[in-house]
Each structure stands twice: as structure tokens, then as C-alpha cells.
């Protein structure tokens, strides 16, 4: 009897201790998530909305702008993530060599972009890729092109600029994960391979890459999520243009909510498209990377 009472008071104490955190989590995490799920079934403009069932999902299938944004997002994902991760891995492998001169300088230099101010770097990119910007001047000077490339005015080149920008910004970030993981690999494994006559490319491909597999999985999931949510660069450098050629899902959500006549319900539906995509793609990546033994 006494023990049961003691048990109950411990229970109450326990709940009291975790309550503040739970309340905050509930208010700022769970409630918005559930509310947005509810909102995704509402139709209407501004604060006038009513339950529309799957009307928003039907609207998705008929919305050319959404399909544009979805396609763009996937192009960014498929082109940029592999390029960035391969670059990060190569940089990490190169900078992990203790004999490399100035490697802490290079490490810092490559990592620095992801901690620089977003606005500053966006303005810089905009000016560099302007019609009379440094990049065009340089390419003209070395004779690679005869006329300036319309970087920000052409749908194709605008995508290239966005991909260059996010690659520049996030490669160093991923490189740090690879470097950290590489430094945990027993050095004598490489020494054994050297004595065994395993060539350098094979040491990288057959030893380093497999041993980094968990980290590669982690970075690819994180980068996939990041790219699906891509907003900053397209908003500040290209503003989704020209003619929606760099419009992403996140930017579209923002436009639906804050730029156009607010359509909260539909914006929520598009948000849940991202959620579902993140879920599916992460699952696929885990399955692909699963240990088969």
C-alpha cells in the first residue's frame, strides 16, 4: 500500500519535471504540425477557409506552377547533391594527408562558406554573375566565350548559378564530417594496404569509401532534406526567376503564404509534399545503404 503510494508520488514527480519541456514541445512543435496537417485540408483565401477534403491534393495535380517547382527541386537534388558529396569526399581525402602543405588553411577556407552571412554571399554571387560581372569578364578575357553568358536571365544558366552557389556553400560542411570520420580510421589499415601493394585509387575506393559508408549515408540524407527545402539561395539570388525556372517547393510555399493572396491551406498541402518526399527518399537511401551481411 505504502509502496504503491510512493510509486504514484514518484510518477507525479517525474511528470512534473518533464512537464515544462513537454508543454513547450507540444506548443511549438506538435501543435503546429497537427494544425498544418489540418490546414492542408482547408481551402480558401486569407482567413476565410473551409474544409475542402482532398480538394488541395486535386489542385496539386492541376497546378503547373507546383509541377514546375517540383521538377526544379528534383533537378537541383539530382544534380547538386552527388556533385557536392563527391567533391566533399575528394577534398576530405586530399586534406587528410598529413604531408599536405597548408592543409589547415585549406580546411578552413573550404569550411568557411557555410558560416558566412547568407545575404553577403548572395549579393556577391549576384554581382559576380551579372552580365558585366567578374565571371563573364574572366571567361571573355581567357577567350572561352565570345559573348557574355546571361547567367541570371537564362533559365538554364540561372539553375547553374544556384547549383554553384549551394555547392560552394555546403561542400565544406560535408567535408568536415568525412574528415572527422577519416581521422577515426586506424592508420595501420592504410599502411597494411600499402605494403600489400594496393594502389592509391583502390585504397580510396575499396577501403576509405566503404569504411565511410555510415557517414556518407548520413550526409546524403541531410543534403537531400536540405535540398528539398532549398529556399535561401533561390530567394536571394534569383527570386525563383527567370520565369519560375529556379522556383523551388519551399519558395513556392513562401509565395503562396506571404506573397500572393494568402492560401494557407494549399501552402500546407505543398509542405506535406516535402514531408512525404523526405520520408520516401530517406527510406530509399537507408535501404540502399543497408548492410547485406
Amino acid at each position: 500500500m505504502a509502496q504503491a503510494r510512493l510509486g504514484r508520488s514518484e510518477q507525479i514527480n517525474g511528470w512534473l519535471f518533464v512537464m515544462p519541456a513537454l508543454v513547450l514541445l507540444g506548443m511549438f512543435m506538435i501543435y503546429p504540425i497537427l494544425w498544418s496537417l489540418w490546414m492542408s485540408f482547408q481551402t480558401g483565401r486569407g482567413m476565410n477557409f473551409s474544409f475542402g477534403g482532398i480538394a488541395n491534393i486535386v489542385r496539386l495535380t492541376q497546378d503547373p506552377v507546383f509541377q514546375r517547382a517540383l521538377t526544379n527541386t528534383f533537378i537541383f537534388l539530382i544534380v547538386q547533391v552527388p556533385i557536392m558529396l563527391v567533391l566533399a569526399l575528394l577534398f576530405a581525402a586530399a586534406l587528410n594527408d598529413s604531408k599536405l602543405w597548408g592543409r589547415s588553411f585549406f580546411r578552413t577556407a573550404i569550411f568557411l562558406p557555410c558560416v558566412t552571412s547568407l545575404v553577403a554571399y548572395s549579393i556577391l554571387f549576384k554581382s559576380m554573375f551579372a552580365n558585366d560581372g567578374v565571371i563573364n569578364d574572366f571567361l571573355l578575357a581567357v577567350g572561352l566565350i565570345a559573348t557574355p553568358i546571361p547567367w541570371l536571365a537564362d533559365p538554364f544558366w540561372a539553375k547553374v548559378v544556384v547549383i554553384l552557389a549551394i555547392t560552394w556553400r555546403w561542400t565544406g560542411y560535408n567535408m568536415i564530417f568525412y574528415l572527422a570520420a577519416m581521422q577515426n580510421i586506424d592508420r595501420s589499415i592504410y599502411e597494411a594496404a600499402r605494403i600489400d601493394g594496393v594502389p592509391a585509387w583502390a585504397r580510396f575506393w575499396h577501403l576509405t569509401v566503404p569504411m565511410l559508408k555510415p557517414v556518407i549515408l548520413f550526409t546524403s540524407v541531410i543534403s537531400t532534406i536540405g535540398t528539398l527545402q532549398l529556399f535561401d539561395e533561390v530567394n536571394t539570388i534569383t527570386a525563383g526567376g527567370p520565369s519560375d525556372s529556379t522556383l523551388t517547393l519551399s519558395l513556392y510555399i513562401y509565395n503562396l503564404t506571404f506573397k500572393f493572396m494568402p492560401s494557407f491551406g494549399y501552402a500546407s498541402t505543398v509542405s506535406y509534399v516535402i514531408v512525404v518526399l523526405v520520408g520516401i527518399l530517406s527510406f530509399i537511401q537507408f535501404v540502399v545503404a543497408r548492410d547485406r551481411r
Partner: peptide, 28 residues
């Protein structure tokens, strides 16, 4: 090192962790 006609066994064994015993021995 690979052309000296030597083989080395390390204190930490230095096995390739993602390869089976068979693959470890046949890798070189």
C-alpha cells in the same frame, strides 16, 4: 613497401573491417 618482398602483421591487426576473412586475405 609493396616491392620489398615483405609482409607485415600489425599490433592492431589492421584488418579491413568491411571485408570478410576471405576478402581480407585475398585483397592484396
Amino acid at each position: 613497401p609493396s616491392r620489398r618482398g615483405i609482409a607485415m602483421v600489425f599490433q592492431s591487426y589492421a584488418l579491413y573491417p568491411h571485408m570478410t576473412v576471405r576478402e581480407n586475405m585475398g585483397f592484396a
